[in-house]
Amino acid sequence: MNVVADMLLTEPAPLAIWVTLLLAATLSVLALAGVDGVRDPHLVLVDAVPGVRRLRARRARRREDAAHAVRYADELVVATGRAARVADLWREHAEQSAQHADTAWQAWQDAEQRLVVMRAASAYPMPDAGTPAEHAERERFLHRALGAAVDRGDLPAGALTEDGGWDPSLHPVEQERAVQQATVAHRRALYQRAVMAEKAVRHDARLAVATRDSLRQEAAVAVARATAVRHLVPGLRPGPVSRPRRAVLIPA
């Protein structure tokens, strides 16, 4: 053994001096590190090693990324359930719109058939009103026919108050034919509007289904990723995720 080692092993005084110097140097390092370092000397030792600092930073980033992945997966699961319910509502709305269009088409066809019968019945010329009383009766008949058509939905409510070009001097048979012609036009317009509404609803229903399916696929991927890293954040509570929400259409 060398001379210094022999001296430290055989003489206690030099050993005490070296221990004192080492302790003083350690306290000096802790004082330079600040209050936190004096309170927790382990932090000074950790921060003094760059490799350890990088390892801690990587672990912190992994935990942060894992927390984000878990929250995002949980949020997507909720959004997928909501999108599925919305898609079901749109499907029901589309079915109702299709049924409404079918009903409107049948009402139009029925009106057309009644007009064919009336045209055959009024094929022959009808006599004109001979007296003022007869003219007044024909006018009252026209108002009753229009009111009945409005009550049935064959004509809009404005048919009673607006000037529809009605001729109260016509024979009641001819008046009924005129009312039926207006009914056919109204029923055809209602059917056309119903078809346009059905197309719009079906388009929105397809968008809702596409949104639901897209969310399902994205949620499946997110859940798989979250499952792989959930052990890194076992006590994580659901929280907000900084990601824009998808817009989902709601039936009017």
Rank of each mutant, 00 (worst) to 15 (best):
A194S: 08
E64Q: 08
E134A: 03
L207D: 08
A84I: 07
A83I: 14
Y72V: 00
H171F: 14
E174K: 00
A31Q: 15
R63C: 03
D65N: 15
A178H: 05
P244M: 07
H100E: 05
E162K: 13
R246Q: 06
V86G: 03
D6L: 01
V233H: 01
H93P: 07
D154L: 02
L160G: 09
R216A: 04
P251H: 13
P238K: 08
A148Y: 02
A84V: 11
P172R: 02
G165M: 00
R202P: 02
P41W: 04
R187V: 13
V179T: 00
E75S: 11
R187L: 05
P132Y: 01
H135L: 10
A31I: 12
L155I: 01
E11N: 05
D74R: 15
A220V: 03
P234S: 06
E139F: 03
R62P: 07
P125A: 03
D36I: 08
D74S: 06
E75L: 04
V49Y: 06
R138Q: 11
R225C: 10
L236V: 06
A24H: 06
V29L: 15
A178L: 08
V223T: 00
R62K: 12
V78C: 01
T80M: 10
P41L: 01
R216V: 14
R39G: 01
I250H: 14
H100C: 07
D36K: 04
A87V: 06
D74H: 11
R138L: 15
P14F: 13
L43K: 07
V35F: 06
V4F: 00
H100N: 04
S169H: 11
L55S: 15
D163Y: 01
A194N: 05
A120F: 06
V78N: 00
R177S: 13
Y191R: 14
R54F: 06
A94H: 04
A16M: 15
A66H: 05
D163P: 10
D74M: 13
L22H: 07
A148G: 12
R187Y: 04
V19M: 10
L170A: 11
S214A: 13
R91S: 13
L160M: 10
A133L: 08
L21K: 06
D88M: 07
A178R: 08
T80E: 03
G147A: 13
H186S: 13
V195P: 04
R62L: 10
Q96L: 08
R187H: 12
M1N: 13
E95G: 02
D213R: 03
R54H: 14
E176H: 08
R216E: 09
T161R: 13
E218R: 08
R138G: 11
L155H: 00
